[in-house]
Simulated scan of single mutants.
Amino acid sequence: MDTKSMMIDIAKNLFQQKGYIGVGLTEILKAGNFSKGSLYHHFPNGKEELLIACLQSMSEGMTNDIEDIFERYPTTEEAATAMINKLIANFESEGTISAYTFSSIISEMALLSEPVRNACSNLYIKMQRIYLNKLVADGISEESANSIAVMMTASLEGAILLCLTQKTSEPLKIILDVLPTLLNFKWKQ
């Protein structure tokens, strides 16, 4: 793995654990045994540019994982169920789901930095597009599918935060129970 990729991986883990404000450049440099010159060589604009690279890396990993799951299952309900079960299993075995959420970063930085806000927005848009496409393939109108996709994204992100703060997978299990009702509701066609 090259130095830039290692910096992104180390910073991504630290940002997810401690938030953007809670991690200083010195900590990132020390964790990877990087020089300050090396950091600024790869990220001339410093910590914020590194954060954006981390968000793009997270986006790629998350959307690839979601796309893989949604391609393996014939319906939105089956795909979403598989995805939520994976999140529950991750939480119950590791005690966290940090690889699937970046809300702490958004809450810290989205109002302070337009580039960071855009990077976060792009990830949510990609996630919603995956859900929307599967819902349309299930025969739901694009307008209704868009509304459901937004609701799914918001519900899952909120449930992940609740799991982390309450130290229980119960919020994801509740979404898993409610999801079939939502998806089988007679949406306007």
Score class of each variant (00 low, 15 high):
residue 98 S to F: 13
residue 122 N to M: 11
residue 101 T to M: 04
residue 7 M to C: 08
residue 178 V to Y: 06
residue 24 G to L: 08
residue 168 T to L: 02
residue 143 E to N: 14
residue 75 T to L: 03
residue 12 K to T: 13
residue 125 I to T: 10
residue 126 K to T: 11
residue 67 E to R: 15
residue 77 E to N: 12
residue 92 E to N: 09
residue 184 N to L: 06
residue 62 M to K: 11
residue 186 K to E: 11
residue 84 I to H: 03
residue 117 R to H: 13
residue 25 L to H: 06
residue 121 S to M: 13
residue 146 N to R: 15
residue 96 T to Y: 14
residue 169 S to F: 05
residue 171 P to F: 09
residue 121 S to H: 12
residue 59 S to E: 08
residue 58 M to I: 10
residue 86 K to W: 09
residue 54 C to M: 07
residue 25 L to I: 14
residue 42 H to D: 02
residue 88 I to R: 00
residue 87 L to R: 08
residue 30 K to Y: 09
residue 22 G to Y: 07
residue 143 E to P: 01
residue 97 I to F: 05
residue 139 G to R: 09
residue 142 E to N: 09
residue 18 K to M: 04
residue 143 E to A: 15
residue 66 I to R: 10
residue 85 N to F: 07
residue 162 L to K: 14
residue 120 C to S: 14
residue 154 A to I: 11
residue 174 I to K: 15
residue 34 F to Y: 05
residue 131 Y to T: 02
residue 51 L to P: 00
residue 17 Q to W: 11
residue 163 C to D: 00
residue 156 L to P: 00
residue 112 L to F: 05
residue 160 I to N: 07
residue 167 K to E: 15
residue 28 I to P: 06
residue 149 A to N: 08
residue 70 F to I: 04
residue 5 S to V: 12
residue 130 I to A: 02
residue 111 L to K: 09
residue 179 L to I: 09
residue 121 S to D: 10
residue 93 S to F: 05
residue 17 Q to L: 14
residue 4 K to M: 11
residue 121 S to P: 00
residue 29 L to W: 08
residue 17 Q to S: 12
residue 175 I to H: 07
residue 95 G to A: 05
residue 177 D to F: 09
residue 128 Q to Y: 00
residue 1 M to K: 06
residue 162 L to H: 09
residue 4 K to P: 01
residue 74 P to G: 05
residue 122 N to D: 11
residue 134 K to H: 03
residue 99 A to L: 11
residue 13 N to V: 13
residue 175 I to A: 02
residue 106 I to H: 11
residue 166 Q to T: 13
residue 166 Q to C: 06
residue 157 E to D: 15
residue 179 L to D: 08
residue 60 E to S: 11
residue 19 G to Q: 06
residue 58 M to K: 11
residue 163 C to A: 07
residue 185 F to V: 10
residue 103 S to N: 12
residue 94 E to Q: 14
residue 104 S to P: 00
residue 94 E to G: 05
residue 77 E to K: 13
residue 80 A to I: 03
residue 11 A to C: 08
residue 86 K to D: 14
residue 71 E to P: 03
residue 172 L to P: 00
residue 76 T to R: 03
residue 3 T to F: 01
residue 28 I to R: 07
residue 91 F to N: 05
residue 139 G to S: 11
residue 122 N to L: 12
residue 87 L to G: 06
residue 18 K to E: 08
residue 113 S to L: 03
residue 40 Y to L: 03
residue 157 E to C: 07
residue 58 M to G: 01
residue 156 L to K: 06
residue 64 N to L: 10
residue 73 Y to V: 02
residue 3 T to W: 01
residue 95 G to K: 07
residue 52 I to K: 01
residue 23 V to P: 02
residue 63 T to Y: 01
residue 166 Q to G: 04
residue 78 E to L: 10
residue 70 F to T: 02
residue 55 L to T: 07
residue 81 T to D: 08
residue 16 Q to R: 15
residue 172 L to N: 01
residue 93 S to Y: 09
residue 157 E to R: 13
residue 8 I to C: 07
residue 113 S to G: 00
residue 179 L to R: 01
residue 1 M to V: 08
residue 31 A to N: 04
residue 133 N to P: 00
residue 143 E to G: 10
residue 118 N to P: 04
residue 188 K to Y: 11
residue 22 G to P: 00
residue 166 Q to H: 12
residue 24 G to N: 14
residue 105 I to F: 02
residue 148 I to G: 00
residue 163 C to T: 02
